[in-house]
Design a protein around this nucleic acid. Structure first.
Ligand SMILES: [Mn+2]
Ligand SMILES: [Mn+2]
Ligand SMILES: [Mn+2]
Ligand SMILES: [Mn+2]
Lengths: 223, 223
DNA sequence: CAAATAGTTTTGACTGGTCAAAAAAACGAG
DNA sequence: CTCGTTTTTTTGACCAGTCAAAACTATTTG
């Protein structure tokens, strides 16, 4: 029903809102995120508003309605299930699946998504640790108390649960060093002054800048 | 590069040409096949012609160029590999996969298709027995001497290799009766006058009208 | 062969999505 | 507050894809 374009706008609004902890998103943020001219966004926001998918206040920004949020979550669900499916069945790597899912998310039926969900055993997170919205339109898994690796003290034992920066280069670097969701690491050093953090992963010790370590969400593991 | 619409037109031209054994396809045929107004087709044919994908002669019709044929075959390859992949991994039925692949065929990368091809073991035919164009742009498998079931004499033993009519209802009927590609059948009766043909499939005998039997391509099996 | 019919192209219009550049509004120092 | 900067909206234009209906060709058929 909703066009590919509308789906992309709604998903972008949802994700920007999540990333910035604020319901309202500005025209400019959307334009940047979608690589589109600001005027283009303005006109699309009017369209979304007219179709009841978003509330638009000129010069203030946009906010999803119930219906818009539901649709956005459905697209996000398709996206994340597809990512996991491609990793599981075809061994694509986690740095490849995003681009692939970005296109496919608009062209698979609900029936197919249900089959994929079933096949994967109703997973809760995608390959990047991002939560998969449930079939009934809820965003799950925001309960877990994950914190950025950059905030972890030396000697704490942690498990990586989510990666926020999903640039392919960064993801490949993480794969090389073993810092993937599910892996556990022992923090050996966290130096404010040096701006870096070292952790033992497997038998190797890897060091990351704070900037990078902020992008890794971990949960602490009882020793 | 080529839009979804262009891909659909090219694929339709290719398949109409195959179905009618003639390079040239009329505006009207395309309009029917794509469920679009004739005038719409005319203007798209000019576009295809300008981009070097097809040769268009007003009032005569259209014919794919080398480039157009290559692109059409790539789309068809994606379509058929996707169909088989969905059947194999998610147990979709052969009457469901066409609709699904019709949309997905435009949104999967060459890399993904290569992975699927590898995963499936470089298959030569899709779930309907249609040949899968090769990665280097050739239509394979036109060598086999398959004939319509309707032409088979009584007492001949045949293997079903391809189904031409792919209406979901028809396909489901075939599944019920076991007349799927790969299955063998023993022709018990082929009556011109009665206009029907009976064959033993497994332990059951099934009868088909000639119209339906024409849609089943078979190869004879040495007794 | 001419008239009727069938098929095709043209015309004019519309929608959805986009951009560049001009105009307007909001913001933030001083 | 007021001027200059940033952000947003408006304007006018464009492209792809589509339709309905009129105009035109081609093909039948009497
Ligand atoms: Mn997308
Ligand atoms: Mn993801
Ligand atoms: Mn298609
Ligand atoms: Mn098929």
């Amino acid at each position: 029903m909703a066009s590919l374009t509308v789906e992309n706008y709604l998903k972008a609004i949802l994700q920007l809102a999540a990333a910035t902890n604020s319901e309202w998103i500005s025209t400019g943020q959307l334009a940047t995120s979608l690589s589109v001219a600001p005027g283009t966004v303005t006109s699309m926001l009017k369209t979304l508003s007219e179709s009841g998918l978003a509330a638009y206040k000129p010069y203030e920004g946009v906010c999803l309605t119930k219906a818009g949020r539901t649709l956005a979550l459905r697209v996000l669900r398709r996206h994340r299930l597809l990512e996991l499916f491609l990793v599981k069945t075809l061994s694509l790597t986690w740095d490849q699946v995003h681009a692939e899912a970005e296109n496919m998310e608009h062209s698979v039926s609900d029936m197919l998504i249900e089959r994929i969900d079933e096949y994967l055993g109703r997973p809760e997170t995608d390959p990047h640790g991002d939560p998969i919205p449930s079939a009934d339109g809820l965003m799950r898994g925001n309960a877990t108390a994950a914190v950025p690796l950059s905030t972890c003290q030396a000697l704490s034992k942690v498990r990586i649960v989510r990666v926020l920066n999903q640039q392919p280069d960064f993801l490949r670097y993480l794969s090389e060093t073993g810092l993937e969701p599910g892996a556990t690491a022992l923090v050996e050093l966290n130096s404010m002054e040096g701006g870096l953090i070292s952790a033992k992963v497997g038998r190797k010790t890897v060091s990351l800048g704070h900037q990078a370590a902020e992008q890794l969400l971990v949960e602490t593991v009882p020793q």
